[in-house]
Design a protein around this nucleic acid. Sequence first.
DNA 1: ATAAACTATTAATAAAATCTATAGTAATTA
DNA 2: TAATTACTATAGATTTTATTAATAGTTTAT
Lengths: 312, 312
Amino acid sequence: MTITQLKYALAIAEHQNFTKAAEKCYVTQPTLSTQIQKLEDELDVVIFDRSKKPIELTEVGRKIVFQARNIVNEADRIQDIVDQQKGFIGGEFRLGIIPTIMPTLLPMFLQNFIKKYPKVKLKIEELNTEEILSRISDGHLDAAIAATPLESDNIKERVLYYEPFVAYVPTNHRLRDKKNIEVSDLDIDDMLLLEDGHCFREGVINLCKSFKDHIDDNFQLESGSIETLIKLSNEGLGMTLLPYLHTLDVKEKLNPNLRHFKEPSPAREVSIIYHKSELKMQIIDALYNVISGVVRGAIAFQNVEIISPLSK
Amino acid sequence: MTITQLKYALAIAEHQNFTKAAEKCYVTQPTLSTQIQKLEDELDVVIFDRSKKPIELTEVGRKIVFQARNIVNEADRIQDIVDQQKGFIGGEFRLGIIPTIMPTLLPMFLQNFIKKYPKVKLKIEELNTEEILSRISDGHLDAAIAATPLESDNIKERVLYYEPFVAYVPTNHRLRDKKNIEVSDLDIDDMLLLEDGHCFREGVINLCKSFKDHIDDNFQLESGSIETLIKLSNEGLGMTLLPYLHTLDVKEKLNPNLRHFKEPSPAREVSIIYHKSELKMQIIDALYNVISGVVRGAIAFQNVEIISPLSK
DNA sequence: ATAAACTATTAATAAAATCTATAGTAATTA
DNA sequence: TAATTACTATAGATTTTATTAATAGTTTAT
């Protein structure tokens, strides 16, 4: 049994197709066929059920592939140890970011990071929290930036910053004349929300729930982006809540629509999260340092109350 | 990097000697030299400092070997998965047993186990708890039978039975006429103890401490085996405590010297313990089943109070 | 029936692991 | 200090293994 064979098995299990897996492994398809056969012969079990289209794992094959993933992950850490020893920070790094953080945070740190660590090939994907968690667990992402705490067993969190919620109150809204908003002022019924799947939406709902016991979950106006929320709000369709960093992007003339919360301001906790195996930890450290350095200049709130991003 | 190379590195790290390691790996010494060189070239680090006699690991070499151990362990589990799938119970299995359990428990289950699982090559070693813990951690033992709970992070415990302490009170001893002993009757100063390193000794000390706040740790009479304790006791040098299973071996004519405790009788918890990775779990299950089946016939105490085997 | 989309097999080749024999290198002993 | 011991490294031959291109075989869909 070789690590190469296990990597081949992983690729086949992932793509459910010898030919595609072979491409990904940069070898020809017969190479995979023979190597998998050797592995199956040596272990004397059938790993793949080739009679199914597309190919499926047998029951024992599933267990073997699961364990193969562990082995390959552990094996990758050897290079990691060597890199750490040499102070080398480089290689491919796949970072996930949730949609409500992506457009504001990414421009703030990306240039900085690339300049400081030119050998790291960052591959950034916009994904929602659920997708992020599963991809970190299965090793398709090295780390992600998301709202926390997430209470996920395999995943570690390291807080980057606390981002307060800011109210966006259009003209003619009942709260327009309040200088500082309080949570108790909020009413879910005139609140514009993001579409399902955004944890920022869950945060807002949790926040409103904190003062109202029951909320019937049928909201009318929803949107896929915060930009659109602002436009809908300007149309007089209700108020909305923005993450603080988004308010820095709001056009000058719309600034009078912003209302900050009375302290302790409700806020979301934003963290860099990664697998508990701490693979590529030196790059995660580098990201942490760059991002928290950049954000320190932009956010300086102390007295906040963290709102959970999880739907309950 | 191959699993074979990692195994070679582990063997060299263990024996601190290429030639001996080569023997253990059933290859010639040049094979190890070249494979380790290849590994070092590929990673571009030096793993072994050959200038030292005997050979030493470099700093990064230590980390790599530690990780190699993980990888090889995880790789071994593939065969484990296959064995489990096939219901195969066999192969070499290294079991440690502490000295105060070995002579009484081993004869009770060994025949039974060998008959039921003839393909398992049991290698049994008598070791104290400390040695057992380190050997399970580093993979030199597959499992062990010891007094628990041990509160060790990497090790799981599965309780086999509870074994009450029984007092051995020689003629002319102050407790001779008591039918049932109570913990408060005990006095560490006329108690014969095993030598340092036995957890049964610690158990007895903990038991005596439970009624006396302070004990100055200078005991006079100590011995390396329970047999000797009984003899010393017969000489009138004091009373002693025996694990219940030992009392079944006490000669007929000495039986009148035994005194059971009033319920709840102090007892030690005896468990099969193994690494949290659950390697060779099917053999551990088999051992568990055989031993607990055998012991169920011999021990039937319900109402016991467990005494910790750890020194505090 | 035929094509499309696969995986398996074959035979040749390239790459590797391993072996035997021996050279090199310290430390130890006479 | 020369010889011995106890190692590891190197060289060259050999065996084993991984990979490839070409192609045969299989299943599914049309």
